[in-house]
Design a protein around this nucleic acid. Structure first.
Lengths: 265, 265
DNA sequence: ACAGGATTCACTCGGTTAATCACAAAATCA
DNA sequence: TGATTTTGTGATTAACCGAGTGAATCCTGT
């Protein structure tokens, strides 16, 4: 009995194989064979919890994918390719799939011209928001204004800031805590720091970004009603000179940045 | 109307997205948004052939994956990330998945020791067979004997042969046609050529491989009964000093190789 | 030929997803 | 303000695929 199903390698492997499109039986059969090296239907069935009579279907599926070979004796014996080969095989398959997808998406002819962005868009979830932030940072040409709490300063964001600094983009940073300030200063010495202008101290702070005065993003952390210990991040963003969110944030930033140090309100 | 559904970029993109685990509706919705840039439920529904009332679910699914943002106006408006971002996103996700899988497979503790291979295994399908051949070539330490028809000399095989030659493995090659011989000689000058000993001229020839005198593989091309124009490749292989297939082939090879030039039979 | 096991095949059941419909909320227009 | 259209959400039905089970067939060794 594998006691704790969480992060048990067997469970993890089966899960990934299913994600790659294998049936449940095939995935479990493959993992069993991986442990056995070689085995018969009965052996597989006993340790993989797959009905004996269906091991054959599963092996056929695995054979089509080039993951398992068969010995046509009685009883049949099955052999799985090595763990390293499996990894390489899937890596190549996935590379091929992503290439196909990218090519196909690139070949789609647009129905109409992609006009200027209007309105304010919302994104939910930390990974998606980080994606959007990084994307904005990568398109920056002149100026980046960025403010963030520590926990949201992931590596990719810092890397993007660094890359922007290297190509001559003016960077103005603010953190909500001295810790964050220090870390930013250390990683990106080119950046100009300014005092945090986050005035709503009881608001669960998130991030605040403006790029080239034309693209802005604001996020906040909200307590998740389901799991009380975790926080959910939600963000809004807008793009374009005349975008309402952009206009508002640009006004705020130029006002605060112009009057650095004056802390009245 | 997209007339020919074969290799139509739209169809291809939808197919790949479904392979990556998106529902049919989500995949079609995303492709539609990719063409539109931004759009409402009705616009998506009209060009994506998705029921209007289901576009919202599809978008929610896409939003969870970070592929689409929403504008909470009336009517709602949807925005899809760029084709390039999509490609990068999936590339990273797949890299993560393969890494997880490789780690999990490596952490599987074997049930019993992987004993010496016995018996003869069969592999079906050209890609799987090529995989096996390359794997054997990569483990070669002393000597490779390889014979193949031209159509099976894919790039990866030649590359593996080249790599083996570079690390000092003695390579003995034979092709079934002078063309193949010439190509091999050109690509891998270190290799020693010998006359083909494929005597069964009416047999649909495939390949024949022996590595270090301990691993052997033989394949033949058989006409496919379904599609008469294509050929199916099927192979058998064995490993280990005492393996019957290995013993037989080793005997043949040493006999023929020892008596090069004598063409009686 | 027979017994035991191995393998294949046919079928049922359950869950998921596609697809349709009904309805409530909101907005536009008269 | 009231009627009509449009938008969004939820419930319901239908079709499909995969898991699981059991019976029928085949093979092997005695």
């Amino acid at each position: 009995m594998s006691s704790d199903p969480i992060d048990d390698p067997q469970t993890a492997a089966i899960e990934q194989l299913e994600q790659f499109g294998l049936s449940a039986y095939a995935a479990r059969t493959f993992v069993a064979l991986e442990k056995l090296g070689t085995g018969t239907a009965i052996q597989v069935s006993s340790i993989a919890d797959v009905p004996r009579t269906r091991v054959y279907d599963a092996v056929a599926e695995l054979g089509d994918r080039g993951l398992v070979d068969v010995q046509h004796t009685v009883p049949k014996e099955f052999w799985a390719i090595s763990a390293e080969s499996t990894g390489r095989k899937f890596e190549r398959e996935m590379a091929h799939r992503t290439a196909t997808l990218t090519a196909a998406l690139g070949d789609l002819e647009p129905v109409e011209s992609r006009d200027e962005q209007r309105g304010v868009w919302t994104v939910d979830g930390r990974p998606a928001i980080t994606d959007r932030v990084v994307e904005f940072l990568e398109t920056a040409e002149d100026e980046i204004v960025y403010m963030s709490v520590e926990e949201l300063l992931t590596g990719e964001v810092v890397d993007s800031l660094h890359a922007a600094a290297d190509r001559g983009v003016e960077i103005k940073l603010a953190g909500l805590s001295p810790t964050v300030q220090a870390r930013l200063q250390e990683r990106i010495p080119e950046a100009e720091l300014f005092d945090s202008l986050w005035l709503w101290s009881d608001t669960p702070a998130g991030r605040l970004l403006m790029v080239d005065g034309t693209e802005t993003l604001v996020s906040v952390l909200i307590d998740d009603e389901q799991s009380s210990d975790s926080q959910q991040e939600t963000a809004i963003w807008g793009a374009g000179e005349t975008n309402s969110l952009v206009v508002v944030l640009k006004a705020i930033f130029t006002w605060r940045l112009g009057a650095t140090g004056e802390e009245d309100c």
